[in-house]
Design a binder for these strands. Structure first.
Lengths: 330, 330
DNA sequence: GATTAATGTGTTATCGATAACAAGTTGAGT
DNA sequence: ACTCAACTTGTTATCGATAACACATTAATC
């Protein structure tokens, strides 16, 4: 493995000089500069950032902890975040908490063991006491995303799920619906989803409407679960005029079941999703959904990081806008 | 920041003893073990893996370089990879090459500067000479994914795109089509896609069928592009009986245009996608597609890594199976 | 030409861990 | 009591870089 010392030897200077040349610090004559660069080129030297970070006591690493990378909305956020941080030579490493507080605790430890300069973490999960303690003790600038309602972190970027629920209820009420349903998944763990649900229920009931809440503890937030729970709803014989789903994937599963059962959408039942991740995937039936712009969220996070001069980061709460995308299911 | 030395002081032992206790190496009496663990707990100590890696000259990092994290198929692969590597305390950090050889070169340098234990890189891109040189010089076990036809890496895991094209052609020929189209995007950069295209064209023409190839240099591989290019095809006045798209997203865009234009699918035109990423998203019209199992691919990669005793990795070429998922568009 | 101020380059200690080996302690066997 | 082995624990050097400062060299000023 080629090291600074090797480059120094070839360029016939000290390691310190090479270090300065490569980082552009200090005053170095043009002559030695070119000599160093030639040596670097000849040897194919790539600096060891592990060693560098150890020495400077600051890393170029940004830790990202989210429930699941496979979830489109998070993939969008990370992609957007990466493309901006890349310009500042900040590397991203990721971990999945799978919405499990225990898993999250372990992941936080793993992440902290790499001494990241920033930690971007999805809120909306009931973190363990130890997790919170660790995050506090390490004093790593902590950016919480996705949970706009709970500005715990030093920086918080995300949509308000309470507002999302309100938008959903407002929309259904405007359409004059009085008997609706919410279909979700593991409520106790996903605080954001339950906030949407509660705010939706509150909005509807306070206007005199009736809401049945259908959630199954351990179903994944996928189309299949949407199918399952919607089928359950239909079998119960309950007639509802509108269904608000936990996310788009479940709404699409639900739509499939409703259409197959001969329900006309939106004439008989209105369907509303959440996240806006179905935009490009649906064909002739365009799902109505409450959407957040993942790329924009990622950009806001990146900007906070890039603006933070020297590690200290200013605490702000950036509420990401929510949009009601009218498709043809309501 | 708490260090090993702090723990050692509190536990009244040497740093070496603490190190041994935490890594479970060497013989340590139960009494000191508990003393050390208590100190660790009291101080909230988390080992510094940067320092550890520097010392042992081996890192617990796996670098992943893919075209785009937002692309569902890669998100699936990474998610699956992560969940398995996590058990071995291997951390994943990612970079996007955006299918650009220059960007890729820069990213490879960034990644190598963290001295990863493994580098997982998407093939099917025309890497620069320097990129190849760097990868060779560093002797990091290199796992190439996605490009099953070109086993360059030490380990290669992915589907054969030549076979995918053959499957597409075979399917259309079986249906008796004689005038079809391929709709894609930036061909010169995405070698895998062009392999699919070429093999598809070869298969069709050798059976006497006629194929028009529609690709625009700089369009993104999204639904909108599928719409655009399909509209172009229709405006040309060409009558085709089947269209094979670069991926599912583009196929779905295409479907939208075809249905709106009054074409009956599949009666007038058959539509075939690639990747299987539309599985859960489509509603009543289920796209026929040639699919690869991203999670399975990720698992294969993880197994290679975990099996590799002590860093050396055995060179194998794992061809991932392709499945023709019959929907109702053919 | 001597003094001062830039400018350019090198020395030494350190970051937080681990490798390799050294040394102290304990107990069994004789 | 003494030796040897097994078991525990500690010392020193090192990984690859950088910080902080020290020392040369050159140029500028009077």
């Amino acid at each position: 493995m080629v090291t600074l010392a090797d480059v120094a030897r070839v360029a016939k200077v000290s390691t310190m000089t090479v270090s300065k040349v490569l980082r552009g610090t200090g005053a170095i004559s043009e002559k030695t500069k070119t000599r160093v660069f030639e040596a670097v080129d000849e040897l194919g030297y790539v600096p060891n950032r592990l060693a560098g970070s150890l020495s400077t006591r600051k890393s170029m690493l940004v830790a990202v902890l989210i429930p699941s990378i496979a979830d489109t909305i998070y993939a969008e956020i990370i992609s957007s975040l990466h493309s901006l941080l890349d310009q500042a030579s900040l590397s991203i490493f990721i971990a999945e908490s799978q919405m499990d507080p225990e898993v999250e605790e372990r992941q936080v430890q793993e992440l902290l063991s790499l001494r990241p300069a920033f930690i971007v973490r999805s809120g909306g999960i009931a973190s363990t006491r130890r997790t919170k303690l660790l995050l506090k003790r390490f004093e790593v600038p902590h950016i919480q995303i996705w949970d706009g309602d709970d500005p715990q972190g030093q920086v918080n970027v995300g949509p308000s799920h309470i507002e999302a629920g309100r938008i959903a209820a407002g929309h259904f009420l405007e359409l004059g619906l009085s008997k609706v349903a919410y279909i979700g998944a593991e409520t106790q763990l996903d605080i954001c989803a339950s906030r949407r649900m509660e705010s939706f229920v509150a909005g509807m009931t306070s206007a005199g409407a009736e809401v049945s809440v259908i959630t199954e503890p351990d179903v994944p937030r996928q189309a299949e679960s949407g199918e399952l729970l919607t089928r359950q709803l239909l079998e119960n014989g309950q007639k509802v005029e509108g269904i608000f789903y936990l996310n788009d994937a479940m709404a699409i599963g639900g739509l499939r079941v409703l259409l197959n059962a001969g329900c006309r959408v939106p004439e008989d039942v209105r369907v509303l999703g959440f996240n806006g991740t179905s935009r490009e995937q649906t064909i002739n039936t365009r799902l109505t959904t409450i959407s957040t712009d993942g790329r924009r969220l990622g950009r806001a996070v990146a900007e906070s990081i890039l603006d933070s001069a020297g590690g200290k980061i200013e605490a702000i709460n950036t509420l990401c806008p929510l949009t009601l995308d009218l498709g043809n299911t309501t």
